Amino acid sequence: MSASAAIRHLYVHVPFCPSICPYCDFHVLTRQSGLVEQYLAQIEREAERLAATYRIDLDTVYLGGGTPSFLRDTEMAALVGSIQRHLGWGRSENTLEINPGTVSAERAAHWQALGFDRASVGVQSLHDPTLLFLGRRHSAAQARSAVEQLLAQGFRVSGDLITAVAGQPLEADIHGLHELGVGHISAYTLTIEPGTEFARRGVTVSEGDEQRGFEVTAALLADLGYERYEISNYARSGQRSQHNLAYWQTRHYLGLGPGAAGHYPAAAPAVSMRRTNPHLHEWLRGDTGEPELVTPHDWVTDALFMGLRLRAGVDLADLSQRSGVDVARDYAPAIRANLERGLLVQSGERLQATDAGWWILNSVVSDFLALDLARA
């Protein structure tokens, strides 16, 4: 990969939330006096530095969090202004993560006027008791209203859904999102991460609920006309997330903001460089985090882990060309073992995970990682 290749994707992290959900382990914090102003000033400086360091020609921009839509209208305008001044704007897709409780017709129009055309809405459920258990501050009615207002404004809308919650009416949640008219659904299993409130409370997720969520979501959304193009993501025609595809295809992307991760070009013998920004207070001081040079074989295992999440899988010849590694040769034992177990299928250079392989993808990829460790 050329170290001078243009970077075409930008992720911007907005860490502020009205409250912290009990399952959340992202870098988020509640709003405090003066912090947003400091954040916006540092965004301007970091965007200017990135522009001076890399060749940038953006196809997609994604504002995630946190709750980006929690920013006031003037603050959002200032943030977008900094991005556009120094880095440009996405030609094909510009996504804003949105909390349903922050939406009004006027705000939707404002976001669209700033240049956003896709909304990722944290619905999570359309069942009030499930929302209460998840610590969400919006109601099912607010979620429905938010989606309707965004669609009416012309946004392409993706609805986030959490599955494997005990007592959740999953089929009703799925039908509800479909009936609202969203073109994309991201369905994620509730995961209890160390350090979260759920972990401290001893909340658990049964494997039966997890597997049922995995299988019911896939079957029902297929019946409703959504293509499962990635383990957790389903889309109608033309509604795939172009930004997230860049992650799954191991493309380069800029990371802007505290806690944001970026994947950058690098000179040989490295294939690329990853950098994760520190949390807010260190980031406000100008700390940028330590760069991690990615070796060819490490890049390949990253690319396999991400690419096998896709229904389309990976092209082994493409991975070889991009990394300089003979992937089919160096990873032959892992490929062969998982083909025999029915967890992978191969057609020519195309390698894909089966549904059974998707269910235990971490185990599949660990076979590839074991070969890297044996080489080290």
Rank of each mutant, 00 (worst) to 15 (best):
247 Y>A: 11
316 L>S: 10
365 V>E: 00
69 S>V: 02
339 L>R: 03
191 T>M: 11
206 S>A: 05
211 Q>H: 13
335 I>E: 09
47 A>H: 07
118 R>D: 00
7 I>W: 12
105 A>G: 15
159 G>F: 05
145 S>I: 02
356 A>V: 00
259 G>L: 01
187 A>F: 02
206 S>H: 07
39 Y>R: 11
363 S>N: 12
195 G>N: 12
108 A>F: 03
83 I>F: 10
50 L>N: 08
306 M>Y: 05
359 W>D: 14
163 T>M: 06
273 M>L: 13
330 D>G: 01
259 G>E: 00
48 E>Q: 15
193 E>T: 13
109 A>V: 11
254 L>R: 08
31 R>Q: 09
370 A>Q: 09
228 R>T: 12
312 A>M: 01
234 Y>L: 06
193 E>D: 13
140 A>H: 06
317 A>T: 01
205 V>N: 09
225 G>H: 11
121 V>C: 12
13 H>C: 05
35 L>V: 07
12 V>R: 05
134 L>R: 12
160 D>A: 13
247 Y>V: 08
94 N>Q: 12
21 C>P: 00
99 N>A: 13
224 L>V: 12
99 N>T: 07
335 I>H: 04
11 Y>Q: 10
336 R>P: 01
26 F>Q: 06
119 A>C: 12
111 W>S: 05
291 P>C: 01
195 G>I: 13
163 T>W: 12
59 D>S: 11
162 I>H: 03
186 S>F: 00
359 W>S: 14
282 E>C: 04
355 D>F: 03
133 F>I: 04
232 S>L: 13
